[in-house]
Design a protein around this nucleic acid. Structure first.
Length: 466
RNA sequence: GGUGCCAUCGCCAAGUGGUAAGGCCGCAGCCUGCAAAGCUGCUAUCCCCAGUUCAAAUCUGGGUGGCACCUCCA
């Protein structure tokens, strides 16, 4: 497959370091608040990537971290009076639950910062030993950006000379304004971790480098991982700094391929707390089926910025509905795995840097063609078999159409309402049989008032939530 | 100010040199007791200007208009 490498800024054929295996590391959430649509987008994109890699036959090792040491977490703890772990556990659980609803497959490895401190210490020590890091009088440890000739090559940034040579006269005692903390000394008695460098907290960038070394990297390889992913905003400074640390502390570079997903905006504006327009997943999931959100968020190319908009979401839902309607037409038939041209084509377009749009066009064509044939009389045994197999493949690779179709269409309708609707449908059927259309139409209006639509089919009358 | 990205039908959105995928909406028809669903048909020459080429939405230059990063951020 080909992958757009956001560092080389070009599409590159994916060639893993170890034949048949692919390693992927993605920056996960800092668990101090509810996950929003942006977190969902990132998780979905890399979930899709792992699914496609697996479908192409790769043995994928996928790691996504949980940042559970962070100033924001500590602030939240001191403000709320709750314990750190109470907060991080709560948001970690919530994250897992919400991602599950979006159909995001769990990573193979999900390291936490608090469980990776030893690896961080080791990395810091190596950087101190080889003079890529220094201690300040305050007890902080900084990475010396001037010591790394490759610094800023990743993000293609230029630092002007004045800025570069500017000595920072603050209490931090940084040599250079671009230097970043590997270890922050904390003396006020608040949350600290013991380390060979004194009590304090690790720098954010260090986490990822350390976890990659600990869980994924093989020392004799040129790159620590095949692919490193994350949100577009992480390229600088986060990934730049990660790459610098790994490059200077180990014998290999951090990643061979870099992938960055675009941002999610709400009605044209960036989500932010100051604008008060953050769309949290927990709220979105109350209104929309998780799979609808999955479909919508993945419907645009991962590198583009995504503008979340309710009208577009509804048109995405209608598209997903079509998958479920054909599933309904074939419901209950046993499926078998057969080779079809559709599968090859689907994998081909998804293998082109995850061209989801092209894959959706293929799915729509496949469904239309199946419906067209099913509309004509006949058994169509082979078509049914192939369509079921195609749908199963779509479920595996894209995660679309994984639910029971009847339950999908009844999302958000409570049992009491379902019972009422079913009673009314039975009454309407009797009226229809008696050709009492005035009554049956009146009953239909009553049913439609529940916010559902009705479909009379050969197999009976079905309803869907509108 | 520095760096970079983008501009395709009413809306969403593929396509990076050979003559515009797909979806939503809309219109017409088939089907239906009537609907709904499904199916069929119809709907763009690709922001502007100049250039390269036998050939450009796709390459180059200029312009206009959006956006992102440069501070924590998916």
């Amino acid at each position: 497959m080909t992958i757009y490498d956001s560092v080389q800024k070009t599409k590159r054929e994916f060639i893993p370091q170890e034949s048949g295996k692919a390693s992927l590391y993605v920056c996960g959430p800092t668990v101090y608040d509810d996950a929003h649509l942006g977190h969902a987008k990132s998780a979905l994109v890399f979930d899709l990537l792992t699914r496609v890699l697996k479908a192409e036959g790769y043995d994928v090792t996928y790691a996504r971290n949980i940042t559970d040491i962070d100033d924001k977490i500590i602030n939240k703890a001191s403000q709320s009076g709750k314990k750190i772990k109470e907060i991080t556990d709560f948001y970690t659980d919530a994250y897992h639950e919400e991602m599950g609803k979006l159909g995001v497959t769990k990573p193979n490895i999900e390291p936490k910062a608090t469980e990776s401190l030893e690896a961080m210490f080791e990395l810091i020590q190596r950087l101190l030993d080889n003079k890529h890091a220094y201690k300040t009088a305050d007890g902080d440890v900084y990475f010396d950006t001037l010591s790394d000739s490759e610094y800023l090559k990743l993000s293609h940034r230029v630092q002007n000379e004045d800025e570069k040579l500017q000595r920072v006269e603050s209490s931090a005692q940084k040599k250079n304004s671009a230097d970043f903390a590997l270890w922050k000394s904390v003396k006020d008695g608040s949350v600290t971790f013991d380390s060979p460098f004194g009590a304090g907290r690790p720098g954010w960038h260090l986490e990822c480098s350390a976890m990659i070394e600990k869980h994924l990297a093989q020392p004799n390889k040129k790159f620590a991982v095949d692919i490193h992913g994350g949100g577009a905003d992480l390229l600088f400074p986060h990934h730049e700094n990660e790459a610098a640390q790994t490059r200077c502390a180990t014998s290999h570079s951090l990643a061979n391929y870099w992938m960055h997903n675009g941002f999610v905006n709400i009605d044209g504006e960036k989500m932010s707390k100051s604008l008060g327009n953050s769309f949290f997943l927990k709220d979105a999931l109350k209104i929309y089926d998780g799979e609808v959100l999955r479909f919508y968020l993945l419907s645009t190319h991962y590198r583009s910025n995504f503008n979340f908009n309710e009208d577009d979401l509804l048109s995405s839902k209608k598209r997903l509905d079509k998958i479920y309607r054909v599933k309904k037409r074939l419901f209950g038939l046993s499926s078998e795995n057969v080779k079809t041209p559709f599968k090859d084509e689907l994998l081909k377009v998804l293998g082109d840097d995850l061209n989801v749009s092209a894959s959706l066009a293929l799915i729509d064509e496949m469904i239309t063609s199946a419906n067209e044939t099913l509309d004509t009389s006949g058994k169509h045994k082979e078509l049914k078999r192939d369509t079921l197999s195609n749908l199963a493949f779509t479920e595996d690779v894209l995660g679309f159409g994984v639910k029971n179709p009847y339950e999908y269409f009844q999302f958000g309708v409570n049992e009491e309402t379902k019972a009422k609707i079913n009673t009314l449908i039975m009454q309407r059927d009797e009226a229809k049989k008696a050709k009492d259309f005035a009554t049956s139409d009146k009953l239909r209006d009553e049913i439609l008032a529940f916010g559902v639509s009705l479909m009379d089919t050969a197999a009976g009358t079905f309803w869907e939530r509108v």
